[in-house]
Simulated assay, not measured.
Amino acid sequence: MIFYTSEKRKPKSLVNTARKYHKWLMLFCGVQFVIWSVSGAYMVFFDIDYIHGDSLVVNHQDKINVDNIHYSVKELREQYPDATNVSVGKFIDKEVYSFTSKDERHLVDASNGKLLSPLKQATAINAAKYYYSGEGHVLDVELITENPPFELSRRALPAWRINFDDFGSPSIYVSAQTGKLVGKRHEFWRLFDWMFRFHVMDYDDGENIENLLLFCFALFGIIAAISGLILTYFRVFKANGKRKITRSVKLEGRS
């Protein structure tokens, strides 16, 4: 008789414990579960190449025309004796030299030796239009030398930000020193960045995906899921088993 009573109480105690933990953990973690679902759905719904802004720019494959180079490397060395990492490239429609001097990158027109960097506003706008694949008009221009927005790396400074009046409010970032494309952003990328921060629960820069807050909520979520499985087992499978036994006993009694 004592053995029978203890066996009866054990499942009941387990169910009550599982119910208590499941209720309070879901009350505590429920909002974050919704955030995980919404942010995860957003990140899965949008194509990652579109989010990266690949469709915002044209991948130019310009070839260097040596006939347009009238300013030799020797002349460059004479004018800039401390120049290092010298390279020849293309900037919009010009052949240019790019080199490092006094810890800064510089751009020189290879046809006449004219120093192009730092880029002036008009040149930066022409470069942005050259890179941009859309048809929107330039909305505003800003030279960023310090305190960059979260979407631009500090290593890219100084840089020009050219905003276009187009779908998604696209922005093209052009280096003021090299004239190269250093960033391409739109509102969907910016929202994606915030969704990622909410998803990994890092509300600073979204780079620390191993933070303690995420670990704790994930652990609580696992415990809530296990307690929910226990409740499901006893309320669904065990209950169905008892109903079948009762139904069988009733049928036998009638027979």
Rank of each mutant, 00 (worst) to 15 (best):
N85A: 04
G179M: 01
P81V: 03
K23S: 12
G40W: 01
N208G: 11
H60R: 10
G183R: 10
A110E: 02
V44A: 15
Y131F: 14
I162S: 00
D62R: 04
S55Q: 15
L212N: 02
I64R: 06
F28A: 01
D109E: 13
R235I: 10
D204E: 13
N112I: 02
Y97V: 09
S255L: 14
D202T: 03
M201P: 00
Y50K: 14
K8H: 10
A18F: 11
E78R: 14
R19T: 06
L143G: 04
S117L: 04
D202Y: 03
V58W: 01
L14E: 06
V73S: 04
E75V: 05
P148L: 02
G136T: 02
E135W: 10
T5E: 13
L229T: 02
K129L: 11
P148T: 02
K20A: 13
E187D: 15
N68K: 13
E151V: 10
Y42Q: 09
V174E: 02
V88F: 08
C216Y: 07
G134C: 12
V182Q: 04
S133D: 06
E78W: 01
P81G: 07
F198R: 05
S133C: 03
N59D: 14
D205R: 06
R254K: 10
S153P: 01
I64F: 05
T84E: 14
E210H: 03
P11C: 03
R243S: 14
F167Y: 09
L116G: 09
Y4E: 14
S169P: 04
I51T: 05
I48P: 04
F28R: 05
R190L: 11
T5R: 15
E75N: 09
S55G: 14
F91K: 03
Q121P: 06
N65R: 06
V44W: 12
V249Y: 11
R254I: 13
M26Y: 11
P81Q: 02
F217Q: 07
A127T: 11
V108R: 00
S169F: 13
L115E: 07
V88S: 12
D166K: 07
N65T: 11
H199K: 01
F198V: 00
F198K: 09
M26Q: 08
S169E: 14
